[in-house]
Amino acid sequence: MSNSDWTPEQPLVSIRDVHKSFGELEVLKGVTLDVRQGEVICIIGPSGSGKSTLIRCINALNTIDSGSIKVEGIEVNNPELDKLKLRKNVGMVFQQYNLFPHKTALENVMMAPIKVLKQAPDEVEERARKLIKRVNLVGKENSYPGELSGGQQQRVAIARSLAMNPDVMLFDEVTAALDPETVNEVLLAIKDLAQDGMTCILVTHEMGFAREVADHIYFTDRGVIVEHGPPSTFFTEAKDPRTQEFLSQIL
């Protein structure tokens, strides 16, 4: 299913005129954006503006009504889509961590590569321990999610996603449910990833983080992208009154 037309020079994720409704409520009204390999983009905007829905459409957790989403040339808006194949290349981290509570931190990280990718357990364990180290959780390998703080759980969730060796990572308001003092440790883990060249799409309310890490920032409101630009200009030269209002409230 890999599309032979796609080359790394083209956008890794290409979103074109995407529309999506939940019943009467149209949450995405023609969204278009591109993400290139190695790029970090942040999607910001008021609650209910369709940000989360948008990134959930990228790995087909939600389906779209019309338009096109291509990940490495694979069309996601396709009833014949091999979702499992798509999701092997697209990692996702959730607001509520969603770790598997009956498995230890290490097992959470190891499970998918062993069961889904059918990789050798020894090799997976070695990699999983490295990932645990990378998210700064050495010593917590055998802890169950219930024994970890929110920030620790979220970092395990990041490691769990990375264990699949995805080409792009989606972060859906991953710090929104965290205690303020644990937000930073999660952001540091994401920053480390971003600096390592991982393609990242983040829905976030952390403006300081967006300014520091993002290559490009998109501001969405009521289902459309109102304004976008690199952080150097986005925060200082916002033209649209809705963006200005949002930024004035949040900064």
Partner: peptide, 17 residues
């Protein structure tokens, strides 16, 4: 919780898995 299904979905687990 549905979050468990979604987490497994996003890790490319099949429905049976």
């Amino acid at each position: 919780p549905t979050g468990q299904w979604e987490a497994a979905d996003s890790l490319a687990y099949s429905r049976n898995q």
